[in-house]
Amino acid sequence: MRHTAPAQEWVPVCALEDLDRERGAAALVHGRAVAVFRTHDDQVFVLDNRCPYARASVLARGIVGTRKDTWFVASPMLKQPFDLRTGVCLDDPTVRVATYAVRVVEGRVEVGGRLP
């Protein structure tokens, strides 16, 4: 649906319909805690679940919204917004969280490797 990655193992996480729109869900993929998000128009994004400011795995519980045309999640603890596409903090572009390849195949969300 969004990113494709080089040859790697894709991990099925859940059905697309299991993800609430504009909410996050935590999952364990390739040994990493990730946050999976579904937008109102059914785009799916995957970020590292760990907030670099709070130093806690909380991003899946963050507030999803838009700033201009940019989808973001705001950390539930300290409210820093992270771009769902790039992982860059919208308030401080020197800080970012990892993003992951994601695709939807036959209604199932699959997560691949970390994106550059």
Rank of each mutant, 00 (worst) to 15 (best):
E17D: 14
A101Q: 03
P6I: 00
R21G: 11
S75A: 13
S57G: 02
T99G: 02
R96Y: 14
D92E: 15
R2T: 11
G113T: 03
C14V: 04
V88I: 15
G24C: 00
G62C: 04
D69Y: 12
V95Y: 09
A35R: 11
D92Q: 13
L84T: 03
V104S: 04
V95P: 12
I63N: 15
A60W: 11
D69M: 13
A60E: 12
E9A: 12
A54V: 01
L84R: 01
E22P: 05
A54H: 00
G62P: 07
R85N: 11
H30S: 07
R103E: 08
V73F: 09
R55Y: 11
V109M: 03
W71K: 08
R50G: 11
Y53R: 11
V111Q: 04
A26W: 02
D91V: 09
G107M: 00
N49A: 11
R2M: 09
F37C: 06
P12R: 12
F37A: 06
V44R: 00
D91A: 15
L59S: 02
G112M: 01
V97P: 06
T86L: 05
A7V: 12
L28Y: 01
Q8F: 00
D83A: 03
A27M: 07
A101V: 05
L47V: 03
W71P: 06
T99H: 02
E110T: 03
G65S: 10
H30D: 02
V58Y: 07
C14D: 03
R108D: 11
V58A: 06
T39H: 00
V36L: 11
V64W: 04
R38H: 03
L47F: 11
V44W: 09
F37Y: 11
R67W: 13
V111E: 03
D42T: 05
L16H: 01
D48M: 01
C14R: 15
V97F: 01
G113L: 09
A7H: 11
L59E: 03
W10E: 01
K79T: 13
T86V: 03
V44L: 00
E110N: 10
R67S: 12
A54S: 14
R85F: 00
R96K: 15
A27C: 07
F72T: 06
W10V: 03
A35L: 05
